[in-house]
Structure formats: structure tokens, C-alpha cells
Design a protein around this nucleic acid. Structure first.
Lengths: 110, 110
DNA sequence: TTATTTAATCGTAATATTGCAATGTAATAA
DNA sequence: TTATTACATTGCAATATTACGATTAAATAA
């Protein structure tokens, strides 16, 4: 069906899955890495840096923006995209908690 | 097209995306959290704990196993699944490096 | 042997994602 | 005003994902 039954999971589980999903495409990983380096942050530069068509990049940027991980500023005819530092940090906390889980019991059965 | 053009990205970017993708569904997040708690680890228990059908859980387990994050041991007619601790750790390192990226330049343009 | 139990696999329907050409839009330039 | 530039949006084709009923397979029990 292609439809996750989100109502049967906790808010935390759904939140982790949503963040993870947006990182689940190498283009979005690349965009974020590029923005972190802050060489430049114009959409057009991302298009030439990454080898995908402009509408495709625009679509990936939209998803990142929708989750609040980046923000965009119109500057003339260009749009400057940047990491939304606050939101990135809070996302990071959520993900770290998940990744840093440790075996609570001492018996490792496998 | 639904097909990620992996050849235009670095191995690291593709690896991050692959790991993230498997965390991109709340059922797999739930399975992993459950296995970490180690209350029990039998497929059937996961089926009753999470509200999805047995073939669906089995499919999610397969994806987690395929990435090496869990391992399964046949015990009689049951199968015991556990976190693959070593692989989890190395996945964690990769993801932490990505999540812990910091703005390298001091000018935050947005 | 014949159940029974547990889980994997198959097949398929419903939905989501990815990518891009074509087009639209908003700001600036001529 | 009419380009031009940069980006967003639309529409659509190709592919992937999710979910599950039906079936199969493998181990144990009767």
C-alpha cells in the first residue's frame, strides 16, 4: 500500500522516522553537507554542484525546508538557503537518543 | 522515476542515505527500540507488540538484517532477532559524523 | 506418519518517491 | 516596456515502498 500506519506508533517513533526519511536520499545528504560548508548557499550553485536538474533540487530543498532543517532567503532573483541551526540541534538530540540506545539487559541472546 | 541516481554521489553520502532510509519507517524504529530493550526478541512477539501483520514485520526484519543491523538465530520453530552490536556501532559513527557537522564558516548568511 | 507452530516467501494492490520537461512567477536589467 | 535570470510549480512517467492474504518451508509434537 505504500502507506505507513503512523497511528500505531508513538510520536517519538514517527518523529525519528520522519527525520530519517529526509536523510534517506543521497541528494539531500549532499545538499546538507554543502550548506554546512557554507561556501555558498544559492539554489543555482547546488544545481551545478550536484548533477541533478533544477526542479529536482528545488523539490529536495522543499522537503528539507518543510521539516524545518533549512531556511531560504530571497536575495534578488536568487534564493539563499542555510541550515536552520536551532532546528538542526533539536533534530540531532532526537536522533542521538535513538542512535545511542544501549542494550539494557546484559544477556545478549544471539 | 523513483530511482536515486547513486552514481553521482560519494560512497559516504550513499551510505548515510541507506542507513537513514531503513530508519525512515516507524515500524523499523519500533522494532529496533524493542530489540534494544531485549525483553524478548522473537518475531512473533514483535508481531503482537507492533500491530502489523506477520508478513509485514518479517519484511521489515529482512531489511534490517540485510543492512546488518540485526541478526537472527533459529531456535526451534521460532527465530530470535538481536541487535548486531558491532555493526550498530559502526553505523552510529557514520551517522554521528553527519549529524555533528558544524558550520565551518562564521558568517551565517540567513 | 500427520498435525501444529512459527516464520519466510510470493503475488498483488495501494500509495509514495524520484526525476525532469514544460511552464509559471518574481525580481532585476536593458 | 520588454528581456533576462533564478527559482518554484505542475504534470507525468518510471520506479520503490508498504501492507497483507495466501502459500510454503522447516522444526517440533502427537
Amino acid at each position: 500500500m505504500g502507506l505507513a500506519k503512523t497511528e500505531m506508533f508513538t510520536d517519538e517513533q514517527n518523529e525519528i522516522a520522519l527525520f530519517a526519511k529526509v536523510f534517506g536520499h543521497p541528494a539531500r545528504v549532499a545538499i546538507l553537507q554543502y550548506l554546512f560548508k557554507l561556501k555558498t548557499c544559492f539554489c543555482g550553485d547546488l544545481v551545478s554542484e550536484i548533477g541533478l536538474a533544477q526542479p529536482t533540487i528545488s523539490q529536495h530543498l522543499k522537503e528539507l525546508k518543510h521539516l524545518g532543517l533549512i531556511k531560504g532567503n530571497v536575495e534578488g532573483t536568487s534564493v539563499c538557503y542555510c541550515i536552520a541551526v536551532e532546528n538542526w540541534s533539536s533534530m540531532k538530540e532526537t536522533m542521538l537518543e535513538f542512535l545511542n540506545q544501549d542494550i539494557t539487559s546484559n544477556q545478549n541472546c544471539c
